[in-house]
Amino acid sequence: MTAILLLAAALGLSWLVSWRLTGRVLSWLRQRAILDHPNDRSSHAIPTRAAAAGASC
């Protein structure tokens, strides 16, 4: 039972840290207007913020 609670706490903490860092990274990208511009191989048609997924790693 203790191992399950420890695992749940670790997962919850990692989710919280990733969520918080993603928000901070997005805010930083918005302030600096850092965008990923689409090209022929892109899956998006309009410029989008780049590198926000880095916080979850």
Rank of each mutant, 00 (worst) to 15 (best):
M1S: 07
M1F: 09
M1V: 07
M1W: 06
T2F: 04
T2N: 08
T2P: 01
A3K: 10
A3D: 09
A3E: 08
I4W: 07
I4F: 08
L6A: 14
L6R: 11
L7A: 15
L7D: 13
A8N: 10
A9Y: 03
A9R: 11
A9W: 05
A9G: 14
A10Y: 12
A10G: 11
A10H: 12
A10I: 14
A10D: 09
A10M: 14
L11Y: 07
L11W: 15
L11V: 15
L11N: 12
G12S: 10
G12R: 10
L13A: 13
L13H: 05
S14Y: 03
W15Y: 15
W15K: 13
L16D: 00
V17H: 06
S18V: 12
S18M: 14
S18I: 14
S18R: 15
W19A: 09
W19R: 11
R20N: 05
R20G: 02
R20E: 00
R20A: 11
T22F: 05
T22A: 06
T22P: 04
G23C: 04
G23F: 00
V25N: 01
V25P: 02
V25E: 00
V25W: 00
L26G: 02
L26D: 01
L26M: 12
S27N: 06
S27C: 02
W28G: 00
W28R: 01
W28E: 00
W28P: 00
L29C: 01
L29Q: 06
R30K: 12
R30L: 02
R30D: 00
Q31C: 02
Q31H: 04
Q31R: 06
Q31V: 01
Q31M: 02
R32Q: 01
R32T: 05
R32A: 01
R32L: 09
R32V: 00
I34V: 13
L35W: 03
L35S: 13
L35R: 15
L35N: 10
D36F: 06
D36Q: 09
H37E: 14
H37C: 08
H37F: 14
H37Q: 10
H37S: 12
P38R: 14
P38Q: 14
N39M: 09
N39S: 15
N39W: 09
N39K: 14
N39A: 12
N39V: 15
D40R: 15
D40W: 13
R41A: 15
R41T: 10
S42P: 07
S42E: 06
S43W: 05
H44A: 03
H44S: 05
A45P: 06
A45G: 08
A45Q: 12
A45V: 11
A45T: 14
I46N: 09
I46V: 10
P47A: 08
P47D: 01
P47I: 06
T48K: 10
T48R: 13
T48N: 07
T48V: 13
R49S: 02
R49G: 01
R49V: 01
R49H: 03
A50E: 02
A50P: 02
A51K: 04
A51V: 11
A51E: 00
A51P: 01
A51C: 07
A52Q: 13
A52E: 06
A52P: 07
A53F: 06
G54P: 03
A55M: 08
A55E: 04
A55W: 05
S56I: 12
S56N: 08
C57T: 07
C57H: 13
